[in-house]
Design a protein around this nucleic acid. Structure first.
Lengths: 231, 231
DNA sequence: GCCAGTTTTGACGAATTCGTCAGAGAGACT
DNA sequence: AGTCTCTCTGACGAATTCGTCAAAACTGGC
């Protein structure tokens, strides 16, 4: 037991450092969402409520921080989607659910969404991006015969591009029904994958759990996510 | 006739001013393509080979210049695609040709391509973006019964997102066969539009004119495009 | 309580960047 | 040639931004 206590103690310093880093990343995400990436470092640290010098303890340049901020947001989004679809068998349902929930997230978590939109395109091929995850799911669908496309990769490009464009459209036109739009896009893409039209429509109109509830369940259990300060 | 001469003369000043503006826009496009948008204004004017003070004769802020640079690139791309497809009847062929040629442009004109990728997502709904043009073509296809989708708008989002993702992929993975990739993506999207698979495949495998030749023909005739200096 | 190792902090001088402005230059008109 | 107007130009002072560093704060081990 004393070992456990010691271990916990040994990690208090690390946690403090991680807190500072997380604060900086959260501030960077806020600025990224507001599309204000050429702010002075002092403004970032003020927003993060840390000393100006702390920035240089964690990052060499602003760009490095913003990069980390985007990767963190993408990792979060990926982990959340995985958690929400892990118990589904049908690849078509996995894809539809991921896509439709992503659409809902754009409205419920506009900051996360904007961060991803801001740089998601250039991260499609990155290991942090949603590309690898989507490619895995599409490939699974092809191998199981559920999807009948010639090659998963072009399909991935379409799906990933559509996901980002959908988010952009939801932000640009808040008056539209975002849920219906997301469902329609998902349905179109399923048909492109080779899912019969009737089935695609049924899958994309099935009821979804509330994103808010899902997020609340998922967030506390996710590893290495910048948490809001528990002041 | 003296009127015509006077008019020509009156415009010499305007042309000189437009030259300076075009130089600035070309410099901005180069920087945009290199993803270096937080450079000092002096560096932009040096690249444009104009005096530092000239910048403020044309733009209030750097962002305003970059905005103009993106709009100029998008207008060019749109005008070129229109010129290349104006005499085609079948909406499916118009779409396929636009999409496949856009894919080729990413490799042939990497700078134009990168500029569009850098901000194309946020310009989908803009009048300068490719969105309105694509929406027009897709709607035409729906009305003529060639496309059987429920709603043109979600389809537009998929096509636009895919076009940008394709460009990104071509830059990220230069070892891939970009022409084949673009053709496959176009084919998948045509099938999504409701074009029978066999037809979609045939349309997207038909031979294409050389983008280089087309560009050479189209460029000199396009209005209000920043031309390279004819030193 | 004290020391060694780490992280945080913000003040400061150095360096960069900004935006203005007065003068030069080019063109149009008399 | 003279003058008027509009654009171009780059030097300059003002303002911003950077990155370092020595001191302070915190932590863990003794």
């Amino acid at each position: 037991m004393s070992e456990a206590v010691a271990a916990a103690a040994r990690k208090r310093g690390e946690r403090r450092k991680a807190q500072t880093r997380a604060s900086l990343i959260r501030a960077a995400q806020q600025l990224l969402a507001e599309d204000r990436t050429s702010v002075p470092i002092l403004e970032i640290t003020e927003l993060a409520d840390v000393g100006m010098g702390s920035f240089y303890n964690h990052f060499e340049t602003k760009e490095e921080l913003f990069q980390a901020a985007v990767e963190s947001a993408l990792d979060l989004q990926g982990a959340v989607l995985d958690a929400w679809t892990e118990d589904i068998e049908d690849p078509a349902e996995v894809f539809a659910r991921s896509f439709r929930l992503t659409g809902r997230i754009h409205r419920v978590e506009p900051q996360l969404s904007r961060v991803i939109i801001s740089r998601g395109m250039s991260m499609i091929s990155s290991e942090h991006g949603l590309g690898p995850r989507a490619l895995r799911d599409i490939t699974r669908g092809c191998e199981s015969g559920r999807f009948t496309i010639a090659d998963p990769y072009p399909a991935l490009l379409i799906a990933a591009g559509a996901a980002l464009a959908l988010g952009q459209a939801i932000h640009d036109h808040p008056e539209r029904d975002d849920a219906q739009l997301a469902d329609q896009v998902a349905e179109d893409i399923l048909r492109m994958f080779g899912v019969p039209p009737g089935e695609a429509a049924a899958i994309c109109r099935s009821p979804l759990p509330s994103v808010v509830d899902l997020l609340e369940q998922a967030l506390p259990n996710l590893p290495h996510v910048p948490q809001p300060d528990s002041a």
